Simulated assay, not measured.
Amino acid sequence: MKLGTQNQAFFPENIQEKFAYVKEMGFEGFEIDGKLLVENLEEVKAAIEKTGLPVTTACGGYDGWIGDFIEERRLNGLEEIKAILEALQAVGGQGIVVPAAWGMFTYRLPPMVSPRSQAGDFKAVSESLIYLDKIAGETGTKVYLEPLNRYQDHMINLLSDAQKYIEMNNLENVEIIADFYHMNIEEDSIPEALRTY
């Protein structure tokens, strides 16, 4: 098992110093903000070379969810995720972590009626994943689909929800990432969900 970390607010701002700091803490991989990677690609490459600390994945750094209610924002997000996947390819990263959305809507708070149907949700997320599956194939990367808990997203809460998108859309470069925090809220049995999906 290897341990990695996301970027944190208390990490140094300078990219070389940031990578050295993460390495010094004992981490073996860095999950970088996608925007930071794209906008500072050459600096990131130099930091990887100097410290030997790999960028394993990216998370965040784009301005539209794959299940965004606003179509223009969804499409903009897809183009930004494409650029992140291309940058990950350039640094040897494995892929990007994406939820359907975060904090956009929940059935747990008023108005409790989604502005889009469940069929509409499935269509939007499927179109996004089909597009990103192709980009991931071209870049040799993966899209790691992350189910979130019901209080942060209404579309994909269980590992089985994520598996449904992968199977029904015949996705080859989309895989499930299982987050224990969200699973602790949503899954009846974390071990069983991991074994099954």
Rank of each mutant, 00 (worst) to 15 (best):
P115L: 07
S114T: 03
G61M: 01
G93L: 00
P54N: 08
D121T: 09
F105P: 05
A136K: 02
E49I: 05
L145I: 07
N169I: 11
A124C: 13
L148T: 02
L159Q: 15
A100Y: 03
D68A: 08
E49Y: 07
N149W: 07
V143F: 12
G140K: 05
G60T: 05
A136Y: 00
I130E: 07
G93K: 00
E28N: 08
A90K: 02
E43C: 05
Y165K: 12
E43M: 09
T141D: 00
E72Y: 12
R73Y: 05
A124N: 10
L88M: 13
T56W: 01
Y131V: 09
V113W: 02
G29F: 03
G26W: 11
P110K: 12
T141K: 01
A83K: 15
G93H: 01
N149E: 08
I130N: 08
D133A: 13
G52Y: 11
F105Y: 14
M25H: 12
I32D: 00
P115G: 06
L132T: 07
D161S: 05
V38P: 00
L36G: 03
Q163L: 13
V55D: 00
P147W: 06
K35E: 11
G95K: 01
P110W: 09
I84E: 00
E138W: 06
G67M: 08
L41M: 09
A90H: 01
Q163C: 09
E71R: 15
A83H: 12
L37C: 09
N149V: 11
I32C: 00
H154C: 15
E43Y: 06
G120W: 14
A162S: 04
L109V: 15
M104I: 11
L109E: 13
L53D: 03
A124H: 10
Q118W: 12
P99W: 00
I32W: 00
E71Q: 14
N76H: 12
G67P: 10
Q89I: 00
S126T: 15
E42W: 07
S114W: 03
Y131H: 14
W65E: 07
R116I: 15
A90Q: 04
V55I: 07
E28W: 06
E138S: 08
T139V: 07
T51E: 10
